[in-house]
């Protein structure tokens, strides 16, 4: 457990030293929102329309920003044989995966915490509660990152890694994204826990399933 946090701390320390990745993720997710405001320009006048498209736009921004972050997650380890170093650490392979996933989750949550207030201000958008939307978004992010971290390690070995990652990742995380977007919409417009219990359960199940499956197969991804 401590080892997992050590690996996550290593990744985060490395990231915060330069903040290269984090900056581009935040800027990118803001750019998605700008593009969204341009492409939906005329219909954003009424708050009703904003409410309808908000969860979708937020998730598009998170997913795109997340994909960039994930695509770098293992590429950084290729330099100077860092991956070999990691594999030599006296920890199980599953711990490496979990540490990486934790670091990626933290990065994505930071991006989300910055993006959402800006979205709220720019579109004059009212959020009905903080806890429930936060929970839904966190669960969705965990599921997304669980699959994404594994695929990041998987595509690092391929010829066209930057292109291949989103192509592999997006259809796979659909079972997480469908309930996440549905539940985010209801939660943001002030639904109660009971209203979205079905989506929450589905999210939880897929988070657990993806996490466990990834733990089991990660060993085969990085063995060489």
């Amino acid at each position: 457990m401590i080892r997992i946090l050590d690996i996550a701390a290593k990744d985060l320390k490395e990231e915060f030293r330069t903040k290269q990745m984090l900056n581009s993720m935040v800027i990118f997710s803001l750019l998605v929102i700008v593009i969204f405001s341009i492409s939906f320009g005329p219909i954003l006048g009424s708050s009703e329309n904003v409410e309808m498209v908000a969860p979708g736009v937020l998730w598009i921004a998170f997913i795109f920003a997340g994909s960039i972050g994930l695509s770098r997650s293992f590429v950084a380890e290729l330099e100077n044989g860092c991956l070999e170093g990691l594999k030599l650490c006296p920890v199980s392979r599953a711990a490496i995966y979990t540490g990486k996933a934790v670091a990626n989750i933290v990065l994505m949550l930071i991006v989300e915490i910055i993006t959402i207030p800006i979205f709220v201000i720019l579109f004059n958008y009212n959020i009905g509660g903080l806890f429930l939307p936060g929970l839904v978004i966190a669960l969705g992010t965990i599921g997304f990152v669980c699959v994404g971290t594994l695929l990041s390690a998987l595509t690092v070995n391929t010829r066209t890694r930057e292109i291949l990652l989103p192509v592999l990742l997006l259809p796979l995380v659909l079972p997480v994204l469908i309930p996440a977007v549905m539940a985010t919409g209801s939660a943001l417009s002030g639904a109660s826990m009971g209203d979205i219990s079905q989506e929450l359960r589905l999210l939880l199940v897929y988070d657990v399933v993806f996490f466990l499956v990834a733990q089991l197969v990660f060993e085969y991804v990085i063995q060489d």
């Binding site: 592999l168 796979l172 659909l174 079972p175 499956v213």
Partner: peptide
């Protein structure tokens, strides 16, 4: 074969 097998397992979840 190895990477495709991993993806085949993960993909089955959907």
């Amino acid at each position: 074969a190895r990477l495709a097998s991993v993806f085949g397992i993960l993909g089955f979840v959907s």
